[in-house]
């Protein structure tokens, strides 16, 4: 039986206080997802593909200067602005909290990208090319997108699917060997970690600034943060006031109402730069 995949709801937590901007996630993503080599021209034309990118914001002037890093990837919004504008349903929201891009349906209107507040959608302006030998590295689990196609972070859905198939296949509790009822064959955090099913960026992140799990998974590291974030949304929807000064949880551009499935944790700043 195919696992009850609909029960998952994936989410990522990005701890800005841990992020050092080291770019490990960026390259890990490129290695996993067959992202074309970002040549100098791509950068000069501002068309480089980085499904996850580290944005650096300056604050202040020398000598009271700070640089803050924030990894920005597709936020997998619950109310994604990109989804309603796609005329062909190439992008849509699935039951697992993921914003999905189906490459072979995309016609290339670029409306989704225009309407993405996070600018995390990447258009293949050119046909991607790799030197013949480098093609050996391409991941067979991920399509190579041809020109004219919009692409973006998929939460490494291929790795999750691989994990789910393995969970199904085994159907057994790894430690006790008991047979798991079909409906309970879910991919939990421990299995994801052990089986290399976490998204590539999360797997690589040396400071553990990125965390990924099922939002309902008690064993996972993201549940408490998502519970808090959802509570905030609920309070706001009911007209309540959220005291943000004592919580680290927030969502990027919450005021647009996109309800991202990526939650950020505030950076702790003992010596903030005085704003001019």
């Amino acid at each position: 039986m195919v696992a009850q995949r609909v029960d998952h709801k994936w989410g990522m937590v990005v701890d800005l206080d841990r992020c050092t901007g080291c770019q490990a996630c960026v390259v890990a993503c490129q290695a996993e997802n067959n992202i074309p080599i970002n040549t100098k021209d791509y950068f000069q034309q501002r068309r480089a593909y980085e499904w996850i990118r580290i944005e650096r914001y300056w604050e202040g002037q020398f000598p009271n200067v700070k640089a803050k890093f924030i990894p920005i990837l597709c936020q997998h919004c619950e109310n994604a602005p990109c989804e309603p504008v796609c005329p062909v349903f190439a992008t849509y929201h699935n039951d697992e909290g993921m914003n999905v891009q189906i490459y072979n349906r995309c016609v290339g209107t670029r409306y989704c990208s225009v309407n993405c507040p996070y600018t995390v959608r990447f258009f293949n302006y050119w046909e991607p090319v790799w030197p013949e030998r480098l093609r050996n590295q391409l991941n067979p689990d991920v399509t190579v997108r041809s020109r004219g196609i919009m692409e973006k972070c998929s939460f490494c859905v291929q790795r999750l699917r691989r994990g789910e198939v393995n969970v199904e296949r085994r159907g057994l509790e790894p430690l006790t060997g008991e047979r798991i009822p079909t409906a309970d064959r879910k991919l939990n955090y421990r299995q994801m970690k052990e089986g290399n099913y976490l998204p590539s960026c999360v797997q690589a992140c040396p400071t553990n600034a990125l965390q990924f799990a099922d939002q309902h998974d008690e064993t996972g590291p993201v549940k408490e943060h998502f519970d808090e974030a959802n509570e905030q949304i609920e309070t706001r929807e009911h007209g309540g006031h959220v005291d943000e000064s004592h919580t680290r949880v927030y969502r990027l551009f919450e005021e647009i109402g996109t309800k991202p499935n990526v939650v950020y944790l505030k950076k702790v700043e003992p010596f903030p730069v005085e704003k001019a």
């Binding site: 800005l16 501002r46 990118r53 300056w58 604050e59 927030y250 919450e254 505030k266 702790v268």
Partner: peptide
Amino acid sequence: SKLEGDTRAEEIGTTPGEEIIKTIKP
């Protein structure tokens, strides 16, 4: 050839809701 755009990336938000990288006092 850089990733950053053509303006110096600084936070321009004026209200708390507009901050990108929110901070908190320890």
